[in-house]
Design a protein around this nucleic acid. Structure first.
Lengths: 217, 217
DNA sequence: CGGCATCCATTTTGATACTG
DNA sequence: CAGTATCAAAATGGATGCCG
């Protein structure tokens, strides 16, 4: 009944002891853009099964990586959110994503699920801090029902679910198109011209998007 | 017999499809410091068993992450080494290590194995590029039978198994002490004074070590 | 040593039914 | 919707034997 572990005095192995099992880092990925409810996690993680999801959540909570919280009334529904230690996993998740952008993002298979939030995170992984120096901008993305925003400031980005406060620019597209945009397979300008996307707001901010989030080499 | 996957069009998930299974990232970790033979991999990865190790190696080779190579005669022994795509995993492995240094490196348990190379990689994870700006230095570490070196140049480090060409400084210690040093639990100067370590070479280079590889907050 | 094959005991997982 | 219970199907680990 003991948890399986590597039993190595090594920072990488110790980390993988905590978050290296199947599904675990994907749960963290889901929560990087904001708190989520049990069902929404399950829906994003097709195939996990409620039992395993519950087990993983419990483990991550015990490890201090996430916590169960109650949404304030009238919602009063339980959600899971990352603790500061959990948010510290962001660089690791983004580093994995960065590798995937370079080496593993062939075309989408029919079986493959897709969520706008994943592409937003992919953009974050592609973020170029050098190009962002001195830039302050807020973008809002509307993809199907999903709304996300990304805030660029002080050479960093953070992206979260939900609308932006006062976005400098708003990008609107269907899932297919947004995936193409986020992964650098199509330029925003062309998608707009083709009627596949809409872009409003500050022109300069929109132009800068491509240098802030350059497509992978 | 189909490989288990997440079936998500997401860079993180795609990466984990390739390297997210048990042992896989630890194999990559082992190879980050240089090519290794089958047996040495197995020895470092206590518990994996030859069958699973062979399976993982084959998978990683098929994925283009490592390749089987023959050491030049007279050694003429097969070794496994990372391809460029495999080396691109370094930032991800180091990001995981960085999290572990901060959040998971409690005291060593008796069960825990230890290899000097892991601590060297831990140091690399702790590396501060800002402090390294303009610094050029080569360090050699001798821990038990193991010899490693780290080369700092152009704001980056790389560390490999084996002696350095013309090291600026050499640090010598037993495993226990080296783990303490690498994880910031003891200062080099004190370890030397206590007779637990030896440090020779350029004094300035030795002093700079602590700022180049600051212990985790 | 390098590495595959095999058998078997344990764990992990996946899928689904079920309760508050 | 949140989460537990249950059971069948994989994956793993450990031992061992084998062959070049």
């Amino acid at each position: 009944m003991t948890r399986r572990g590597y039993h190595q005095y090594c920072a990488t192995a110790r980390t993988l002891d905590l978050v290296g099992e199947r599904w675990t880092l994907l749960i963290v990925r889901e929560l990087l853009t904001g708190p989520k409810r049990f069902k929404d996690l399950g829906d994003s993680l097709a195939g996990i099964g409620t039992g395993l999801l519950a087990e993983r959540l419990k483990h991550l909570e015990a490890a201090g990586i996430l916590r169960r919280a109650m949404l304030p009334p009238p919602a009063a529904t339980p959600v899971y959110e990352l603790t500061p230690a959990g948010q510290d996993l962001e660089p690791a998740v983004l580093a994995l994503a960065r590798w995937g952008l370079r080496h593993a993002m062939g075309p989408r298979a029919e079986r493959d699920g897709f969520r706008p939030g994943w592409a937003v995170l992919g953009m974050q992984a592609a973020f170029d801090p050098v190009a962002a120096e001195g830039v302050v901008a807020v973008y809002e993305f509307r993809v199907g029902d999903a709304v996300f925003h990304a805030r660029v400031d002080g050479g960093r980005v953070s992206s979260r679910m939900g609308p932006a406060d006062r976005p400098d620019a708003v990008i609107e597209a269907d899932e297919e198109t947004f995936a193409d945009l986020a992964h650098g397979r199509q330029r925003l300008r062309e998608a707009v011209r083709a009627g596949r996307a809409r872009a409003t707001g500050d022109r300069a901010a929109l132009t800068r998007l491509r240098s802030l989030f350059p497509p992978p080499v």
